[in-house]
Computed example of a mutant assay.
Amino acid sequence: MNSAPHVPAAAAPSHLATHLRLIGMAVLWGASWPWGRVLAQSLPPLAAAACRFLLATALLMIWLQRSGRLAALRGWSASRWGGMALAASFGVFGYATFFMMGLKQVPAGKAALVVTMNPAMTLLLAAWLFKERLNRVIGLGMVLAVVGAVTVITRGEPWHVLDGRVGAGEVLLLGCVVCWVGYTLIGRRVMAGVDALTTTGVTAAIGATMLLVTSLVVEGPAAWAAVPDAPMNVWVCLLALAAGSTAIAYAWYFQGVKALGAGAASGYITLVPVFGVVFSALWLGEVVDASLLVGGALAIGGTLLMNFGRR
């Protein structure tokens, strides 16, 4: 009996380009911290945040239009729009406000390490609210990440958390953590069935509107008069944040999720604080002291452990 002729198996598709894009995403998100620090030192924080997301929204809307997704928004229900508005109030308006106000007072490298608490707080609350299962590896990763972040916040003296000697800038950055965790958990309930690109574009547009209105009310029209006269380096950072850290980085991240899966793609986010510290030291001349190195190593190691434990 003759056997069927052997047909060579097709070569597995190379994901090299995908991995390179995900590294590029981590670079752009890491660079957002020194870029944001430059903006926070030069412009009113709410006006700067609004400018970033207004520019990003313009790019994202063009992207949605060209991909054919924009027309689908007409069929959305009022409850879906309400859910998007709630998500935008946390993930764009709240996060961007705390981001800019925190960076006005805290060095960019330190700020990038503080928000390594995001995954730990998200997983902890997801276990409580949605009954997600935790294990010992995830638990150890959470402890390391929080200890590392607290070490960075308190400059290596964590007992200062108890006596209230944590700076206002660090407290504002913890607001970033709260808002991002809220955005992530809200997304579990209100954004089901909507692709990531559409979610990003819509929440960016709603959040940009919130930031614009709040800036005009709180900071006044005078805050916007300073924007056209900002130095060239400020405009470069603003455009880089809008196009690079928002539109391009999100595009590369979503492509990575599609090609490799969410778990593999999200692992690259661990590199973000590394690039944030490196770029802040190189571009802004920020000092990397022992507490930043030790706390950063603990926080990043804890994040890696949590990713490993989830798999």
Score class of each variant (00 low, 15 high):
Phe53Lys: 05
Ser77His: 00
Gly244Phe: 04
Tyr250Trp: 05
Ala222Lys: 08
Trp63Asn: 04
Gly24Tyr: 01
Trp33His: 03
Gly175Arg: 14
Tyr95Met: 05
Arg311Thr: 13
Trp224Ala: 14
Leu292Met: 15
Val227Met: 03
His19Ala: 04
Gly109Tyr: 05
Val161Pro: 06
Val146Pro: 01
Gly82Tyr: 10
Gly175Cys: 12
Val92Ile: 15
Ser32Tyr: 02
His19Tyr: 13
Val217Trp: 14
Ala297Asn: 03
Val137Glu: 00
Gly167His: 10
Asn2Arg: 14
Gly24Val: 04
Ala265Cys: 12
Arg311Gln: 13
Leu293Asn: 00
Ser245Phe: 09
Ile269Val: 15
Val234Met: 00
Gly83Gln: 05
Gly263Asn: 14
Thr57Met: 11
Gln105Asp: 04
Ser245Arg: 11
Pro231Tyr: 03
Arg69Val: 05
Ala71Trp: 05
Gly109Trp: 02
Ala259Glu: 15
Gln41Phe: 02
Ala168Glu: 14
Trp252His: 09
Gly220Asn: 12
Val137Cys: 00
Tyr250Leu: 13
Trp283Lys: 00
Cys51Thr: 11
Ala50Phe: 09
Ser77Trp: 01
Leu282Asn: 06
Ser79Pro: 06
Gly193Trp: 07
Arg189Phe: 09
Arg189Ser: 12
Arg310Leu: 08
Ser77Asn: 05
Tyr183Asn: 14
Leu46Asp: 03
Gly295Gln: 05
Val181Ala: 08
Pro8Leu: 14
Gly68Glu: 03
Ala17Glu: 14
Glu286Ser: 01
Asn233Ser: 11
Ala247Gln: 11
Val146Thr: 09
Val92Met: 02
Ala240Ser: 14
Met1Ile: 13
Val27Trp: 01
Gly201Met: 08
Gly276Tyr: 07
Val257Met: 15
Lys131Phe: 07
Ala26Glu: 11
Met306Tyr: 02
Asn307His: 11
Val115Asn: 06
Gly68Ala: 06
Gly309Ser: 10
Gly296Tyr: 04
Val114Lys: 07
Gly139Cys: 13
Val92Lys: 02
Ala242Thr: 11
Ser245Asp: 04
Thr199Pro: 07
Leu293Phe: 05
Leu284Arg: 00
Asp289Arg: 12
Leu172Ile: 15
Val257Leu: 12
Leu16Gln: 10
Val278His: 09
Pro107Leu: 13
